[in-house]
Amino acid sequence: MTKKDGDHITTGRRDVRPDAPAHVKGVKEGNACGNYDKQAGHLPDARSTAARSTGINAADRDPIDPDMPNLSPA
């Protein structure tokens, strides 16, 4: 390929927008603002309950002693 003086690197014509594959507008994202607070089991003070891990009898999975930290699997 020959280049004229004054040309920069020659590249092909792009056939996709640079930001095409990611973060498509209108698609719901897990990290959207307010999503964390909306989901069950997340308490406002940065703690969480078993409800963030399971929807089945979540309260039964919380610690038996309220003074214990609530550490659900995920």
Binding site: A46, R47, S48, L71
Partner: peptide, 8 residues
């Protein structure tokens, strides 16, 4: 019990 690891 402070399990929060992410801020939106």
């Amino acid at each position: 019990g402070l399990t929060k690891v992410f801020t939106d």
